[in-house]
Amino acid sequence: MNTPHRSGHVAVIGRPNVGKSTLTNALVGAKVSIVSNRPQTTRHRLLGIATFPEGQLLLVDTPGLHRDQGKSTASAMHRWMNRAARGALEGVDAALLVVRAGQWDEADSFAYQALHQAGVPVVLVVNQVDRLKDKSALLPYLAQVSEGREFASVHPISALKRKGLEPLVKAVLGLLPEQPAAYAEDEITDKSQRFLAGELVREQLMRLLGEELPYATTVEIERFVVDGALLRIGAVIWVERDGQKAIVIGKGGERLRDIGSKARMQMERLFGAKVFLETWVRVREGWSDDEAALRAFGYHE
């Protein structure tokens, strides 16, 4: 008897910096969502397409879900990310609530409540179990976080080391409707190469700059030209102040060259082509709290 093919949308939800994008990339088998150790690296809602013989997971990777602080204290960027995270719940067939092993706080409870209210089956994904020093604490922790909450199943995993993913995939596919795949087997995301190029530059900004500055930066791809076997890409890094521009460029342009070099290598790996990348840094004051600027830079529903 043939196993029915299942396919559907699965929201990947959790508080910032618990490994949602790492999990999405691990399931897709390719880098479609950028990763850094800083919270709120993901700004856009992004679809990762994970195809298996038994079915297809359409993984909706989102910005971290957090309490909305209200218009007076939250920037336009903050409000945009919360809308993107909440919008990911519309029309999904199931959701993955990603938490960090050994931790559960108000932000995790807030994310769970949002999913519970949405009325979709919730799979608890306990990430980074490899980092637990006391492995005997895992079972009591799982019992504690499951008490009084409805989970379709619970899965301890390590997204980074790709451990525990097979049982997770099987469980999630079981929650999806029987229907054919929505995308071809070789498709990995609904985003364009142009969008991914901008994200790969921004990933290096998140990784290489200080604590606060990455949140004052965004990337706009001004040029994306296919020139035979070569991709010619021009990227503008936008900051909010002249002092920030100097930090991004670095002494003698060294930091900007480093950002460009690392981003170019990631692009070549993802696109399977040689890349000629040019980068510039420009200033637009207060762009992250300006709705019109956000729309111009691609932050729209």
Rank of each mutant, 00 (worst) to 15 (best):
V239I: 12
L115S: 14
L205M: 09
K71S: 09
R131Y: 05
E291F: 05
A118G: 13
G210L: 00
V201M: 10
R86C: 06
G87E: 08
S75A: 13
L168K: 05
P214N: 14
A197L: 03
N37S: 14
R223Q: 11
R255W: 05
Q69D: 10
L205D: 12
V283W: 11
R295A: 13
R269P: 03
F151A: 09
V201W: 11
R241W: 12
I247N: 06
D190T: 12
G174C: 01
K161M: 11
G64P: 03
L173Q: 03
A95R: 15
L142E: 13
G260W: 15
K191D: 03
T24W: 08
V125I: 04
E90M: 06
S33M: 03
P167H: 02
T41A: 05
Q193C: 07
V172C: 02
A235Q: 01
H5E: 10
V120K: 15
K251L: 05
L96D: 07
R79D: 01
R295C: 07
Q40E: 11
Q244L: 07
R67M: 10
N82I: 15
Q56D: 03
G243L: 15
I249G: 09
E54M: 04
E147Q: 11
G19V: 04
G119T: 02
D242H: 15
M81P: 03
G87A: 12
V60C: 03
R86L: 15
E203W: 03
S21F: 07
A107W: 07
F271N: 13
E199V: 06
G48M: 09
L139D: 04
W287E: 04
V122I: 13
R269L: 15
P121N: 01
T279C: 10
A95Y: 14
R202L: 08
G243D: 13
E211H: 08
S75K: 13
G243P: 02
R100T: 13
P121L: 00
G64T: 12
D258W: 09
R86I: 03
S36W: 04
I221V: 14
A152W: 02
G198W: 04
M77D: 11
A263Y: 03
G298L: 14
G55W: 03
L208S: 09
V283D: 05
P156G: 07
L294K: 00
L97G: 15
G148W: 04
G243W: 06
E166F: 00
V248H: 09
Q193F: 10
A181M: 08
A229W: 05
V145E: 01
G64E: 08
A30G: 06
I249M: 11
V169F: 02
R162C: 01
D108H: 06
A85V: 01
H44V: 04
Q117G: 10
V172F: 00
H300E: 14
H116R: 14
V125F: 00
G210A: 09
M267Y: 02
S36N: 05
D93E: 12
M206V: 12
S146D: 14
S288I: 03
R38I: 01
P180R: 10
R162V: 01
G252K: 11
H78I: 04
W104N: 08
I249H: 05
A216S: 15
F271M: 14
L165V: 07
A107D: 13
E185S: 14
A246G: 13
Q204V: 05
